[in-house]
């Protein structure tokens, strides 16, 4: 990995790309090689979430930077591991990035530029300048948008986008607290608490390999959980900020 400039006294901002990976043996190589080759200015860390396939083996053989979780923690736990790493290593920004090839690294720069304007979170959104297509999944996305709007008064056009970048303050808060999954309900909660969130237009690809975690019944459960959480539970939470 490229040697880093000293953090203090330099204007250079350190940004870590966190890539949670659960059974991504089919796509991880392409995603990481692309990052390493074309975007060497960003550090990255893969968090292998107890995969049962060869993900860890591939990372080891190819010499990738990765954290190997011995048990499966789920997306929230895996991503939090990456954030803890970012927190300890003193990164200024951390970017959540998929290991399945959905997210395109050419949009990282625009997102990092945006967050340097002073936002807490910047979401890589598919619908800032483009319209939402009409599909079942987008209906879910709309419902979450409406629920967020109702409870916070703020608009998030693409709440389910998994491509987000967090500033130093958020890294600490996400890394050290419970109930801070990288999900729309946390976004809604933080908005309510006065965090500043911006959206930057990005494009995403269809996932190229592997199976999506969300099938129909899981999607329904996910929606129910998100809506109940945004509409009710988040109103009762007390914030524990990390200094």
């Amino acid at each position: 990995m490229a040697r880093r400039l000293e953090k203090h006294g330099e204007e250079f901002m350190k940004c870590l790309i966190i890539i949670p990976a659960f059974n991504e043996e089919a796509s991880i190589e392409r995603v990481i090689d692309n990052l390493r080759e074309h975007y060497p200015k960003y550090d990255y860390i893969i968090v292998n979430d107890g995969s049962s396939d060869n993900t860890a083996e591939i990372c080891r053989q190819r010499g990738y930077e990765f954290l190997d979780l011995p048990v499966n923690l789920g997306l929230a736990g895996a991503f939090q591991t990456g954030l803890k790493y970012a927190y300890r290593k003193g990164y200024d920004y951390a970017l959540q990035f998929d290991g399945d090839g959905q997210h395109r690294p050419e949009f990282i720069e625009a997102m990092v530029d945006k967050i340097q304007e002073g936002y807490d979170i910047v979401i890589g959104s598919r619908f800032v300048t483009k319209k939402k297509p009409k599909s079942l999944r987008m209906l879910g996305s709309n419902l979450i948008s409406v629920a967020t709007r109702m409870t916070t008064g703020k608009k998030v056009k693409d709440p389910t986008s998994g491509m987000r970048v967090f500033n130093r303050k958020m890294i600490g808060e996400f890394a050290l607290n419970m109930n801070y999954g990288p999900e729309p309900d946390t976004i809604s909660y933080l908005l309510k608490q006065g965090a500043t969130i911006a959206e930057v237009q990005v494009e995403m690809d269809e996932r190229q390999a592997g199976e999506s975690y969300l099938n129909l019944s899981r999607s329904m459960m996910y929606m129910m959980r998100m809506l109940l959480s945004i509409l009710f539970i988040q109103n009762f939470r007390k914030r524990r900020e990390v200094k």
């Binding site: 109930n179 539970i233 007390k238 524990r240």
Partner: peptide, 20 residues
């Protein structure tokens, strides 16, 4: 139940059942 949720002694996944 709401108070415990507020003190974040409970994960949201589990809180939902008890809230319902």
């Amino acid at each position: 139940i709401l108070k415990r949720i507020r003190q974040s002694k409970l994960q949201i996944e589990y809180a939902i059942f008890w809230l319902i």
